[in-house]
Design a protein around this nucleic acid. Structure first.
Lengths: 154, 154
DNA sequence: TATAGGATTGACGTAAACGTAAAAGGTGCG
DNA sequence: CGCACCTTTTACGTTTACGTCAATCCTATA
């Protein structure tokens, strides 16, 4: 009777009302599995992005929470704020077609895509400016190491 | 006898000890000229990046301050922190060759360039992921608007 | 029983670059 | 004189996504 797959770091072994093949995972496991910290998971919960079950006060994450976390991480990767992610997730309705949710996601995505492209342009600009400056500096350094004895000061 | 070039918004006209053709500019002028706010100029001063003269308590910026501000703005454009900018500026010595300053600048620039390139890679990644997601969402929306009457629910 | 290893909530700290009052003083103009 | 306009200092507020204690609790195991 394990909470998670065997071989993993599982210390406590509470008797959890695992009626069917429900896989409950505690916060430590969850964090390791997705490469986030405990703090992060609690933070996401505090922000209403996650809603794990509880066994007393212990958080228990199901595959539903895992799916949500994956979405959060994807959202973050593409540059959405947690607020945006929440807005989109809050529209999810397991009984409907979620057309509204999808439309909002698409709308936000288009705007985010535009932001990303603008950002890339800014970065390209910065790279160019920086490269130019570096050339100038290198040139100045060369003049300071090769010219001294050739100038009128010698 | 003007503080700045004529035709600009100049209200006060203090008698400033303008011995030679020194061009003193007050904070309002300075801000307009470089597209920053008063708060920004004061902030930079507070951080030791600028050091305008004073007429009583009024700040007076010279072309030296302008040069420094230009450098600050360039630094910010290429992504340096103000602290980095200050570090580099602090090494400036009008009586020397500033080799140390140039080397530091070059060193920091190389690291910053690497950061920028990494950022660009991340953004490219994000753009790709986002584009993919958008395709998926669009497809889902299509299925929700064309399929309904064709499915078993009709 | 002592210890080690999770887990909990609460709450202040961090980074960067200013924004935004608030309260006050100087100046020229009509 | 009074208003409009510019300037000053002081100091708290903003944003985002957590980091980092701190104090406490629970449990299994040697």
């Amino acid at each position: 009777m394990k909470l998670v797959s065997p071989g993993e770091a599982a210390a406590n072994t509470n008797d959890i009302p695992a009626e069917a093949g429900e896989e409950f995972v505690r916060i430590g496991e969850m964090a390791k599995k997705y490469g986030v910290t405990l703090r992060t998971l609690r933070f996401y919960e505090d922000k209403g992005l996650l809603n794990p079950h509880r066994d007393g006060s212990t958080r228990l994450y199901t595959r539903r929470d895992k799916a949500r976390l994956k979405l959060i991480l994807l959202g973050r990767k593409v540059g959405f704020s947690l607020r945006d992610v929440k807005q989109m997730m809050d529209l999810y309705d397991p009984t409907g077609t979620n057309t509204k949710q999808l439309r909002l996601a698409l709308d936000k995505s288009e705007k985010q895509l535009a932001r990303l492209q603008k950002q890339r342009a800014l970065i390209d600009d910065a790279i160019n400016e920086l490269s130019n400056s570096m050339s100038v500096v290198r040139q100045m350094l060369v003049e300071r190491t090769t010219a001294p004895q050739a100038s009128a000061a010698g």
